[in-house]
Design a protein around this nucleic acid. Structure first.
Lengths: 199, 199, 199, 199
DNA sequence: TTCTAAACGAGACGGTACGTCCTGTCTTACC
DNA sequence: GGTAAGACAGGACGTACCGTCTCGTTTAGAA
């Protein structure tokens, strides 16, 4: 086995780790993903470059971690979707909010950066699925299962497929800028999806 | 007005243009999008760097053009979808083929590169829509309209939305590697979509 | 033969070359040889690092060239030693001047740097001999030959050996700081040398 | 007064000290003086870097000590020069041996390293004089004094000067590689020196 | 057909960032 | 308290490309 020199995580300096992730987030906001350099992150964080290279394999990994750090803080709760008993109303509310979030310029740049990284880096894609996407997916499925039990969705509906059909068009339209993310579009997606998955 | 120096396209050397686009395509295949440099393209093409900078504004633009060059050759024909009269069968055929294409390793790297570029560069995204996506989209809509007239789809169905619902999940699953692109998945998407858009 | 990529000297930028050699000389004076970095030279000269690496193989070579640049300016003339007809007086004059020069703090650091470099780098040592030492050596031998013809030195005296015996002790005493470079010491060396090489 | 923290020499680990000096000597031989790093010495010696920094002020000091360690072992004896009663023969023997030693590739690199260090570091130069050069110098002077008493040298000859005139040319020719260190050259130096210092 | 202005290949330039190496300090755990 | 181990801030190394800028040398359209 090739002796990959692995630093000892026990001795890791938590202050440096935080400073690096903070600096990465700030720089992405200020100059955009493509122009962030490891050198700049190190300088901003008051840290030696080696300290970054010691703990992360690539720029993408650092930036990715700086996203994770944001999401890890909030405890799993609060992630639950609204449940008024009316699945159509609830989904439209959530879809409209999602559409609005994509339109927010503050979120735009970082999320595009994140997607760009995920597309070309399988490792980060795996982390993305496990640590960012799955928890959200699970929360959504919980709401859908509740709707299923209420007879609003077919009992044998494939919930993963349902979520793909519901969200992927919105996501792709945003990624490719192939059309505006209006409330109407969000509503139409909910309507179509429910029509397809109703009992 | 600042006289932006614009080279005279009439005097453009077609041999150089071709050599550059060929070199770009080869290099993407060999070393991956991120590691392709303009310097390497110029060297491989036997061309001065300035010749690239003269005609393209960025690396992304060169690479994007190298894709367009591929698609421009085949005349618009051959792009028409099969029409056996059975929309379900035709769509499943096309969707399975699309899924298989995504799984082909030779297509994988370049298409990911293309998507990565489009996500973060609005100009290229616009070109992508106009010159690559729209013709395909139109061909698909032609087949769907035929199905509409045959009474296999609702007369008032939003065909753009239908295509989003049909293709976006497949595309996203591939981009995020969130699951395998099986024939079953392709079929399920067709089934669900037709269920949603049937009369 | 290994394809050593050699830049084309015809296209060399003379302004950059000068700026680099000037910067090197200034930095040696200011911070000392050991602390001069190529990075600092490039920054001071307003030059890219690659421009240094393109034309010089090592830091030592740059610094060495910055010495040569000093010596190349003065035309070969003016290098002749005094010739009053009295070899003893002339040599003592020159030796005392040499001793004084070694004691000058402004010369000290650079010449030590130069010697340090020469000791460990055969290539630079060769250049040193050919371009710095030999011309001086020749001028000295010219004076000695004149003394030989005047009967003040043995006709068969080995002038190279004589110069070694005359200068090496002074040089070594300075290098090793094994004693003060006084006028008396200079005189004593001349006396002893003449005694050994008189007819 | 600033309390310069001085470690307690009494508690010094002799095994570590030896391992460090041995590693230093090995590395100089293997990769050359300039490329020896404290990090490499510590790794090779199986020692923490701090242990080196605690006991030596600089890389040069470590390397210098590794030379001293070699010379300290042999007790002062064996350092005496041969005394056959014939000063010319004895000096030629010693000078030829010295010339041969300089030509030995195994000695070459370390001695050049030592000289390089001495030239630019006054502290090490002082140590060199006191601990390495002086004992040798004294042994040589003892032999010369014996010759003086035998009437082979002028009674008032400055023996330090004599040794400078005898050895400095050889040493300089080797340092600057300005000529081959032949037996003839060694003999010529002895001849000339004796001629100058004979009664 | 000659002239002339452009586009061209080549590649040096001032720079930025890379990823590695080493420095000298500091911290941790062991003895 | 000295030690082996090694993380740390800092900074230089030598390399790769960036995008700009000359250099001659084609080359194509206007004279």
């Amino acid at each position: 086995m090739p002796d990959a020199k692995k630093p000892n995580p026990a001795r890791r300096n938590e202050r440096s780790r935080h400073a690096i992730l903070d600096a990465a987030r700030e720089l992405i906001r200020e100059v955009g993903y493509a122009k962030v350099s490891i050198e700049a992150i190190a300088a901003r964080a008051g840290v030696g470059k080696q300290t970054i290279y010691r703990w992360w394999p690539s720029k993408g990994a650092v930036i990715f971690d700086s996203f994770l750090a944001l999401s890890d803080n909030p405890e799993q709760e609060g992630m639950a979707l609204p449940d008024t008993g009316d699945i159509e109303a609830d989904l439209k509310l959530v879809m409209r909010a999602t559409a609005a979030e994509f339109a927010d310029p503050d979120f735009e740049a970082p999320i595009r950066a994140l997607n760009s990284e995920i597309i070309s880096n399988p490792d980060l894609a795996a982390q993305y699925r496990d640590r960012l996407a799955r928890p959200v997916q699970d929360a959504k499925k919980a709401r859908l299962r509740s709707a299923q039990q209420a007879g609003q969705l077919a009992p044998d509906a494939d919930l993963d497929l349902l979520l793909d059909v519901l969200y992927a068009p919105l996501h792709q339209r945003w990624l490719h800028r192939s059309g505006p993310l209006t409330a109407e579009y969000a509503d139409a997606l909910v309507d179509i999806t429910l029509k397809a998955f109703r009992p």
